[in-house]
C-alpha cells in the first residue's frame, strides 16, 4: 500500500502546484460568494434558486477538476517518460493505476469539502440553519460519483491519445448520464423494437451517476436519505469504480510505454 500512497502523494503535490486548479477554485468561490451575497434571502423561491445555482456550479467545477486532472496523469507520465524510472522500481502497472486513481480522488475530495463548506458557510450565515447531515450525505454521494468518473477517465486515458479527447468524451458521457439517466427507461418504453431493447439495455448497463445527485435534498430541505440507500449506492459506486480500474489496468498492461 505504501507504493500506492506514495504515487497518490505525488499526484496531490502536482495538483496543488499547478495554477489552473486555483483559478477554478477561486472562480467557484467568488461566484458562490457573489450569489450568496445577493440580498434575496427573504424570498424562499429565490433562496432555493440561488442555492441550486451555487450547487450546480460546485458540481461543474468538481467535475472539471476531476476529469482534467485525471485525464493527463498517464499520458503525462508517458510523454515526460517519468514512467520509466518509476516502473524500474518494484512498482507494477496496477500500482500506477490505483495510485493515480487514489491521488485524483483524494484531491477531488479535498476540493469538494472546501466547496461545500464554503457553500454551507454562506447559506448558513444568511438563513441561520445548518443541516450538516444533509451536507455530509451530499458530499459523500458526490465524492462516490466522482470516484466512478475518475476511474472512467483513467480508462479513457489509456486508449485515447490526447488528454483533451479523454476529457471531452468523458464530460459528454457524464453529462449525458446525468441528464438522461433517470428518463432513459421511460424513453425506452415509448420506442418501437429493437430500439426499445437497445435503450433498455443501455439503461441497465450504464453507471447511474444521477443517483448520487442530492442537490434537491439540500435545496428543498428534504431531510436525509436513508443510510441503507447511501450504503447501497456506495457499494454500487465501488463496483463500477473497480470495473473501470480493472479495464484500465488491462489496457495499460499491454500498452507500449513509448508515445
Amino acid at each position: 500500500m505504501n507504493k500506492i500512497f506514495a504515487l497518490a502523494g505525488v499526484v496531490i503535490k502536482e495538483l496543488y502546484r499547478r495554477k489552473d486548479f486555483y483559478v477554478l477554485f477561486v472562480l467557484t468561490a467568488l461566484l458562490t460568494l457573489a450569489a450568496g451575497a445577493v440580498n434575496f434571502f427573504h424570498d424562499d423561491k429565490i433562496v432555493r434558486y440561488v442555492k441550486d445555482i451555487c450547487l450546480l456550479l460546485i458540481w461543474v467545477s468538481a467535475l472539471v477538476i476531476s476529469v482534467v486532472t485525471t485525464a493527463r496523469q498517464i499520458p503525462a507520465e508517458r510523454e515526460a517518460r517519468t514512467i520509466f524510472p518509476l516502473l524500474a522500481k518494484p512498482v507494477s502497472r496496477w500500482h500506477v493505476i490505483v495510485g493515480k486513481f487514489l491521488g485524483c480522488w483524494l484531491a477531488t475530495g479535498v476540493a469538494l469539502v472546501v466547496f461545500y463548506f464554503f457553500f454551507a458557510a454562506i447559506t448558513g450565515s444568511k438563513e441561520q440553519i445548518w443541516p450538516w447531515g444533509a451536507y455530509l450525505e451530499a458530499v459523500w454521494m458526490h465524492w462516490v460519483m466522482l470516484a466512478i468518473v475518475i476511474a472512467m477517465v483513467l480508462l479513457g486515458s489509456i486508449y485515447f491519445a490526447a488528454p483533451s479527447s479523454t476529457s471531452t468524451i468523458t464530460i459528454i458521457v457524464v453529462g449525458g448520464v446525468l441528464l438522461l439517466g433517470t428518463h432513459l427507461n421511460t424513453i425506452a418504453l415509448q420506442q418501437p423494437q429493437p430500439m426499445q431493447s437497445i435503450l433498455a439495455t443501455v439503461y441497465f448497463l450504464m453507471p447511474h451517476l444521477e443517483w448520487y445527485d442530492l442537490r434537491d435534498f439540500v435545496v428543498y430541505d428534504m431531510g436525509l436519505v436513508p443510510v441503507r440507500a447511501v450504503a447501497l449506492a456506495t457499494l454500487y459506486g465501488a463496483v463500477w469504480t473497480a470495473i473501470f480500474l480493472l479495464l484500465a489496468w488491462f489496457g495499460f498492461r499491454r500498452k507500449s510505454l513509448n508515445t
Binding site: 505525488v10 517518460r81 517519468t82 514512467i83 520509466f84
Partner: peptide, 8 residues
C-alpha cells in the same frame, strides 16, 4: 536522460 517529476 533525466525523466523525473520536475515539479518536485
Amino acid at each position: 536522460l533525466t525523466y523525473y517529476y520536475k515539479f518536485l
